[in-house]
Computed example of a mutant assay.
Amino acid sequence: MSTSRRRFLQKLALSAITLPILPSYAISQTNSRTAPHTQKPVLRVALMGLGGYAQLVANSMQSCTRAKITALISGTPSKLEEWGNKYNVPKHSRYNYENFDDIKDNPEIDAVYVITPNSLHHSQVIRVAKAGKHAICEKPMAINAKQGQEMVDACAAAGVKLLIGYRMRFEPNTLEVVRMRNDGEFGNIKFFQGLAGFRIGDPNQWRLNKELAGGGSLMDIGIYAINGARYMVGEDPVWVTAQETKTDPIKFKEGVDETIQFQLGFSNGTVASCLSTYNMGFLDRFFLNGEKGFAEMRPSIGYGPIKGRTNKGELNHPHIPHQTIQMDEMAGIILDGKKPILPVDGNVGLQDIKIIEAIYRACATGERQELHLT
């Protein structure tokens, strides 16, 4: 994770840093297959790609009741040793990118969480599926829809689940807004606004490399506004228009977008206006407007605490690290067949990639693009 992005998101999480670990989430790092207190099976997870975000996931998982780290995959031997010692992962459960297919023979692994650069997700998830393990993949799931479909198909063929790391789809204040909308408390939804952006730092990082990232801000931070529009409105868009602005072609080279404004249209008449950027700060806001009320979330996508208000007052669900909730909920999806309030399966991720591709086409042509997501 880039330094600037880390600062952007960590500023949103300052109050969470001092939050004590909740005792009810305590779990020891043992080989036990059953969670203490609940007597439900624990999801045994291999983390792939031991970078900045994986560190946040790993730390948050120490508070999970139903998920634990049992294996590591990295191309850096020193990280495997450091993380292995820190999280009590034995040497035989530490893999590199060349030999991780051997996870098929490791009964202490149920799922692999792929947290690597975007362009690597496709091949790595397919290898995970062929090894007979469930796959959790960071967003965006792939750099194009063709790859995304192949990932979905590979997991289906192998009989394993593919979940995408959409942590906001488990966040309590977000789900409260979804509940209110589902219950008709906002009336017919008319408008959504999603602002997502920060000033990116190091120009040599992989997020500014088209071969690794597949694009620019839209792939990284803009996808939150795309996905957010879908779960806040409660519908999928049927058309998109978009405009790209680039003020620094040296830093943001060909194929790496700096700033994109895009508009989404929904079959129920709702419209969405969204902004994705790597060159403006203080952009982390969702706004939903209906005939009877509204919901505003700011911050809406940072690591928390997420804050919001509606026409009926403030949203006040207590903050728990998003990755803690996400991994416990994903354990329920994988091990119990639990149906989440908001789906996070590979098809949801594939639909976001289709929208991203349409946005890029709209920028290139200046024309409205019709969407066919199913």
Rank of each mutant, 00 (worst) to 15 (best):
G234F: 02
G222M: 05
Y224E: 11
G265D: 12
G290P: 01
P237Y: 01
K246E: 01
S273G: 10
G216M: 12
A242S: 03
G265M: 06
M232R: 00
T277A: 12
G265E: 13
E244M: 14
V271M: 14
E291T: 05
G216L: 11
W239L: 06
T245M: 13
A242R: 00
L283R: 14
R285S: 12
M232I: 07
F286D: 09
G215P: 01
S217P: 08
C274S: 12
T245E: 15
S267G: 05
K251I: 11
A295W: 00
G215D: 02
D248H: 12
A272P: 07
F294G: 00
G293Y: 07
L288E: 01
V240G: 02
I260G: 06
I226F: 12
T270N: 10
F266H: 10
A272S: 15
S276W: 07
D220L: 14
V238C: 11
E254P: 01
G265I: 02
G215S: 06
T245N: 12
E291I: 00
M297N: 02
I226H: 10
Q261S: 13
G216A: 12
S267P: 01
Q263F: 13
G281P: 13
F282D: 13
Y278Q: 03
L218P: 03
D248E: 11
A295D: 00
M219Q: 14
T270W: 08
F262W: 07
